[in-house]
Nucleic acid binder design. Structure first.
Lengths: 204, 204, 204, 204
DNA sequence: AATGAATGAGGTTTCATTCAT
DNA sequence: TATGAATGAAACCTCATTCAT
C-alpha cells in the first residue's frame, strides 16, 4: 500500500543527450543567470533548473561553479575578440567603427554575452587565465589605436588614455543596448560611436 | 576529557559608547568591505569585526544587511550630490568642471565612498528609495547640462545623451582614481575632464 | 488560517547554555560516534543530533569536522598520557603495571576515550599536531622502558622493539575491554599484563 | 558562444576483455585503494579509474561497493587461511611458526592483501558471511593451539587467551611489515615470532 | 544599547548507482 | 559485456538573524 506509486530511484539517468548539448545548455543558463543576478546570487540549483538538468550534472562538465564562470567568461571574450580580428584593414577610424558596430550587433543579439565580457558580475572570481584574456582584448584595441597614432589619425599623447576614453564611450553604447534602453534602430549608438572617435582623433 | 579548561565569559553590554559612534563605525566598516569585496562576499560577522562590535549590534542600528547597505549607499550619494549643489553659479562648463573636480577630490580622499556611489557592488540589492536617490543625482547633472543647452553652450540633440557621455567619461576618471592608478597629481584626470566637455559642447 | 501554528523563525537561539557545556556535549557526542561508526560514517547532523544542538553550532566551536576530530583525539591522548606521568617512581615493572592498570581503568569507565586514543577511527584525518601527540605518548612509554633497560630489568636488544611488544599486548587488553568482552573483574587483563612484562623482562 | 569545439564520443562497449580479467583488475584496484585510503575515502570512480574500466563496469561484476569490499575481504581471508592448511603436521610450535612465516611472506609480497585480512579498513561494512569467514580464520589458529595444549606444549589456562596473545604479536609483525618498516631481511619478525611462542608455551 | 551563542535554511560539492547505447 | 553521462540524496559548511543576558 504505497502512497507515492513508484519512488524513482536515485542515480537514474532519465535524459539522454549529446554531452556537448548538455554542456551548452549549462553554459547558456549560467551566462544568463550570472549576468542577470550576479555571481553570488546565482545558485547552482538555479543554473541546473534553468538548464533542465540535475544539479550534479554541472559537476560532470565543470569542476566548480567558479570554473564554470571563468569558462563562459573566456568564451564571451573570445567572441568579442573575434570582432577585432575581423575588422578589415584600413584607416584606424574605420576599423574602430567596425569593432564598435560588431560589438553593438552582438549586444543586440546576445546581451548576456556582452554583459559577461564587459560587465563581469564578479571580478573577484576571475582566475589568472581570465585576467590574461581580458588584457588581451584591451591590447587588441590598443594595437588598433597605436596604429592610428602612427598614422597621425589619433591625437598625440598617451595612447593608453585614448584607448580608455574610446572604450569607455563604446561601453556606454553596449550598456544601454544590453539593458534594452537603446533597441535596434535607435540613433544613439551611432552618435556615441562618432563622439568616441572625435574624442581621440587628431583635431583638424 | 576536557578540551579547553577555561570557560570564556559571555553576554552583557561590555563597551559603552555613544550610539552614534557605533553607528558611524559600522557605516565605515561596511562601506570599506562592500566596496572592496562586494555585497555578497562581505559577511555581517566581517562588518562587525572590522567595526569592533559584536555581531548582534548591527541589528540595533540597521534592520538587516540590505538595509545597512542601502543606508550607506544613500549616504554616499548625498555627499556626491552636495558637490553639485556647491557648484557656484556660472557657465555650464565651469559648473561641470567644478563637480568633476570635487568628485575627483573625494575619490582621492575617500575611495570607498565614490566606489559605493558610482560602482555599487550589487545593484540588485538597491531598494526603491536608493534608486530614487540615484536618479536624483543624475537629474542634478541633467539640470546643469540642460541649462548649458539653453545657453547654447551644449550641443543640440538629446540632452540626456550628452549627460550620459559626460558622466561616462568622468566616471572613467573616478574609476582610475579609486583604483589608485591615477594618484594625486596625475595629469590624466584634467585631460579627461576637458575631453568630456569637448565631447558635449557646442562645436566652435 | 495557518496549518502549522507558529513557524519558528530561523536564527532563533532557543537553548541558553554555558558555551563550555555545549562544547563538552559536542565533544562527547563526537567521541562516541566516531569510535562507534568511524570517522566518515559519522555525519555532522549525527553529531549535532546526539549533542542536542543545531548543526551550525558545531562550527561555532570547531572550524571543521576534521578539527573537531583532532581536538578530541588530542584530548584523549592527554588523559592517557597523564597515566604515565602519574606512575609513581619505582622499578620499571611496577611503573608499567601502573600505566597498564590505569589505562584499563579508563577503558572500563570511558571506552570511547580509549578507543579514540588507541584505535583512532581514521588515521588519515590526523593532523601534524595530533601525530606529534601520538609520538609523545609512545615516547613516554619508551622512556619508562629505557630506564628499565638501564637498570637491567628489561632484556637487552632494541628497546623500541620491546616497547612495541609490550604496547601490543596491553593494547589487546584495552581492545577486549572497550569491546565489553572483558568486563570489570575479568581475570584476563591481569594475566595479559603479566605476560606482557614477562615478554620483555630480563630472563631470570 | 561555444566553449569547447570538439564533441567527445560516447557510449558503447569499447574494450573487449576476458570478463575474468576485468574482475581481477577490479579486485586488485579495490584492494589497493581500500587498504591505502580506507573504505569511505575510496570512491567507485577511483576504483574504476585504477582498474582501467568505466564506472558502470563495476556493477556488472559486483552488485554494490559494499559487495565488492566483502568479496575481496573474503578472498584475502582465503589466502591467509590456506597458510594454516598448508602447515605440515608436527609440533604446535613448528606449525605456528610456519603460519607466521607464511603470513609474513605474504605481507612482503602483497601488503594490500594482508592489510585487508588483518586490518580491514571498515569493520562496519563487513557482512555476515565475512564475519563468519573471519571467525573461521581465528578458529584455524585456535585449533592448532588447542592441539598444542593437548600435547602440553602450550600453557594451561584459557586457550582462547593464548590465541589472542599469539595473534596479537604476530599481528605486530604483519603491521610493521606491510608498513614497510621491517623490510625483507629485517631481524625483528623472527624475534617477535619467538617471543610470541615463548609467551604461550608451557614454561620449562 | 550591547553582547555573542545559537539557529537552520540553503549554499556548493560528492558519489554510489542506473541505463540507453 | 562495457560504457559513461546523468542522477539526486546527502555530505560539509556558511551566515543573516535572534534573543537571553
Amino acid at each position: 500500500m504505497t502512497v507515492t506509486p513508484n519512488p524513482p530511484p536515485t542515480g537514474h539517468p532519465v535524459r539522454r543527450r549529446n554531452p556537448q548539448v548538455t554542456r551548452d545548455r549549462l553554459v547558456r543558463a549560467a551566462a544568463e543567470l550570472f549576468t542577470a543576478q550576479g555571481y553570488h546570487a546565482t545558485t547552482t540549483p538555479d543554473i541546473a533548473r534553468r538548464a533542465g538538468v540535475a544539479e550534479g550534472t554541472i559537476y560532470r562538465h565543470f569542476s566548480s561553479k567558479q570554473h564554470l564562470f571563468n569558462e563562459i567568461y573566456r568564451a564571451a571574450l573570445r567572441v568579442l575578440e573575434s570582432a577585432i580580428r575581423d575588422a578589415p584593414p584600413g584607416p584606424c577610424r574605420e576599423r574602430l567603427a567596425h569593432v564598435a558596430r560588431a560589438w553593438h550587433a552582438i549586444a543586440l543579439r546576445d546581451p548576456a554575452l556582452v554583459r559577461l565580457g564587459f560587465f563581469p558580475p564578479c571580478g573577484a572570481e576571475l582566475d589568472g587565465k581570465s585576467r590574461d584574456a581580458r588584457r588581451r582584448l584591451r591590447d587588441g584595441i590598443g594595437a588598433v589605436i597605436a596604429s592610428g597614432k602612427a598614422a597621425a589619425e589619433v591625437r598625440t599623447g598617451a595612447a593608453d588614455l585614448w584607448m580608455d576614453v574610446w572604450l569607455e564611450l563604446v561601453t556606454l553604447v553596449l550598456e544601454r543596448t544590453v539593458d534594452g534602453e537603446w533597441p535596434k534602430g535607435h540613433p544613439a549608438p551611432e552618435h556615441v560611436i562618432a563622439v568616441a572617435w572625435d574624442a581621440i582623433r587628431t583635431p583638424s
